[in-house]
Design a protein around this nucleic acid. Sequence first.
DNA 1: GCTTGCTTTCAAGCGCGCTCGAAGCTTTAG
DNA 2: CTAAAGCTTCGAGCGCGCTTGAAAGCAAGC
Lengths: 157, 157
Amino acid sequence: MATEALIERILAASDGPSSSAIDALHELLDDATIEASATPKSVAEAARLVGLSTHTLRYYEQEGLVRPARNASGYREYSAFDLRRLVFLARMRLSGMTMTDLKRYILLVEQGPSTIPERRRIMLDQQDRITRQIRELGLALETTEYKIRVYDGHPEG
Amino acid sequence: MATEALIERILAASDGPSSSAIDALHELLDDATIEASATPKSVAEAARLVGLSTHTLRYYEQEGLVRPARNASGYREYSAFDLRRLVFLARMRLSGMTMTDLKRYILLVEQGPSTIPERRRIMLDQQDRITRQIRELGLALETTEYKIRVYDGHPEG
DNA sequence: GCTTGCTTTCAAGCGCGCTCGAAGCTTTAG
DNA sequence: CTAAAGCTTCGAGCGCGCTTGAAAGCAAGC
């Protein structure tokens, strides 16, 4: 299957220094990085760090996905824990998990360890979905590369 | 980067016989396969072959993305050419290209070879988007696999 | 010739996930 | 003291990509 080789190349090519929001997320998941900045973040700072809008962060809270503390004047304060939670939420959303499923999962998380078997099953499903998506993207990628080759005058490829 | 190894494994594991709609698309793009069945397809057959609904096929036609012929009673007849076009559309949609961009691209295609440079640029953009998506999915996959490992009692991973 | 199931067109509706706007409070800078 | 920037809640709005429904025509079997 040509897709495999393609994606391999792509990932290999993405090793250099990159500065996307995704890479910021990646750093954030590293506990060392996030623990180092122990001061809680405002909604705007948190939004910038995880690559979501402040509106979205408030929306997620309203939906029960995250529960930042509040300071004396009622302002949200996102802890390292909250930020890691947000990074998780962002990744699951980006990978196509629905808000409904995400709410269900977080509810289970907040219900304690007894829900671990069900949480595990949800993650296994999610893993399957992501794997399938990667394969689909591989096909789309082949298609675009084929078109590009043709447009470049090498229709034999 | 661990993502690379992960996706490599995933793609390697997807070598066996699989029967998803995506695989059907894959076969369809092979000209030999599609040329062999030279008889035009009804909207329902076409929909089944490319993994879209009949409603969606009519919608795509209405949006100018495909132009199937009509038989004596006004029924649509999808040729091999139309089917290949639909497979292309399905893949571009699945990979996140918007209807607006897709309409623009198809318009260029129908305007002839003089638009090839612009078409090429669109495909290059699309290639970038897909590559970025694959990297994002890699991170989401790492996250799910980490959770699963933890739930399986191996929190060291 | 009747029924069943496919097809047609057209316009309206919808579900998801935000996104925006209004009205008002707090903090910071000058 | 004032102005600007950022925060709060609330509810309404929206854009995308279909999806559905209605009303009617055509095709195949009994």
